[in-house]
């Protein structure tokens, strides 16, 4: 599955290196699924944007 996704996203990862990270990706997704199944309606992401700060230098 990861190889198909990598190809679709045009990621330049050699086959052996992709194979090496597949178990980690499987485990990550298995662990994250519980969080993504939760109802997070009304919860804002914990990342900051402040209109009074920033802008390109």
């Amino acid at each position: 599955m990861w190889k198909t996704i990598a190809q679709a996203m045009s990621l330049e990862i050699p086959d052996d290196q992709l194979a090496a990270i597949e178990p980690a990706l499987d485990a990550l997704w298995k662990g994250a699924r519980q969080a993504f199944d939760r109802d997070l309606t009304g919860v804002d992401p914990a990342i900051g944007f402040r209109a009074d700060v920033g802008g390109e230098p």
Partner: peptide, 11 residues
């Protein structure tokens, strides 16, 4: 995925 993780973080 990233944004949902950040929402769960706030909880």
């Amino acid at each position: 995925d990233y944004l949902d993780a950040q929402r769960r973080r706030r909880q």
